[in-house]
Design a protein around this nucleic acid. Structure first.
Lengths: 201, 201
DNA sequence: AAAGTATGACCGAACAGTCGGTCAGTCAAG
DNA sequence: CTTGACTGACCGACTGTTCGGTCATACTTT
């Protein structure tokens, strides 16, 4: 299962190449042959490390999500007041995820795939939940600390945390097409201000 | 160009079938043969109405986006105070789009496709912009009326409107996987309250 | 009204291109 | 010599698109 036999360097190279190729061509149209070429190995070798295209998908998503959660963890552990921490969390998280633009395209397609699987009744398909659950928990913890410190109003934590994550995702979506960095920054500042204002007592 | 020669009923049936099939199987895996079967016609006939799979994609997206803009237009023309209008707009829009769950899956994939095309430098690919531009304009108009009536604080209209649309999109995303309607409703109320509170003077 | 004729919507078998996955063989290391 | 990592030519399944032929309908003509 774990692709860590043999040369782990190569396993990583395959995943890196896969992220690049699948982001460029899409999950279906991205070819194993192109991934192999990008990784500088033969097509057959790919199958020494991963047994199928699908297994590459999964390994790739795990890598991406781990990166995202890592970034969130780092932000979360910073020593700041709840207000500043939440503001920083949202700003930096949005920027970090925005920078991972290749990853976003892949996650998007995997998410759609997951939604379809759920619809077919394959409930185990929602592997994103774990990671999203973790990120949501970070936000909830910050919110609770803020209420405790009487910085924030009383609230339904889950609802507001959902709003915060929706904010990050939706925001990136809005700018994925045009890539106008300046407009992105301007809107982000205004958006976060508005969001934070909604939490005041 | 327009597929309105011949039997318009059939052209519509093909699009309806396409939405169903592509939502179920994905843009790449969805087969023309299945669409034909679903529409109750022969495979060859599909090509009497649309010249390629890609043309079906485009016709389908146009249909979906037109529906969404229509819904927004109806909401926008209601006679309410800016506060109530915005609240209603967000609540109902989120619900309407949430109900169009098949459409959402397709739009998602098309969006990713569009983002990839943009990245390759095909700038005309962003056909969604028109529709999104219209919806954003509705929101901006409501916001301006609200500021005029001194219901809302001063603000960067574009930034807040972007936030509002991000809210709708991101929110639906959060619930696309689990389809927990009760949790969706609860979070939506809290989310909108929080958003509205951010606009107070 | 009956027979002949033209039209074009409709169909699905066949085609051609694509790509995931396999495997028989090469090569380097020990 | 043995092992096993590595390779790419090859196979076969799959599916978008084409195209020659069918047939219901409508329009002549007598």
């Amino acid at each position: 299962m774990s692709p860590l036999q043999k040369d782990p360097t190569k396993a990583d190279a395959i995943i890196r190449a896969a992220i690049h190729i699948f982001a460029r061509d899409g999950l279906e149209k991205g070819k194993i042959a192109d991934i192999a070429k990008e990784a500088g190995i033969g097509k057959g070798t790919v199958y020494e490390y991963y047994s199928s295209k699908d297994e590459i998908f999964h390994a790739m998503v795990n890598t991406i999500m781990a990166d995202m959660v890592d970034a969130s963890e780092t932000l979360y552990s910073m020593d700041l007041s709840p207000r500043d921490k939440l503001r920083t969390f949202m700003r930096m998280n949005t920027e970090i995820v925005f920078e991972m633009d290749e990853a976003m395209l892949i996650i998007t397609e995997m998410w759609a795939q997951g939604a379809r699987a759920m619809r077919r009744g394959e409930h185990e398909a929602a592997q994103f939940f774990d990671s999203y659950g973790k990120m949501k928990q970070f936000v909830i913890n910050i919110l609770k600390a803020g209420v405790m410190a009487e910085d924030f109003r009383e609230m339904n934590y889950d609802g507001v945390a959902t709003l915060a994550l929706a904010f990050v995702d939706g925001f990136i979506w809005q700018f994925m097409l045009n890539n106008d960095r300046a407009a992105f920054d301007r809107a982000l500042v205004e958006g976060i201000d508005s969001f934070m204002k909604g939490l005041e007592r």
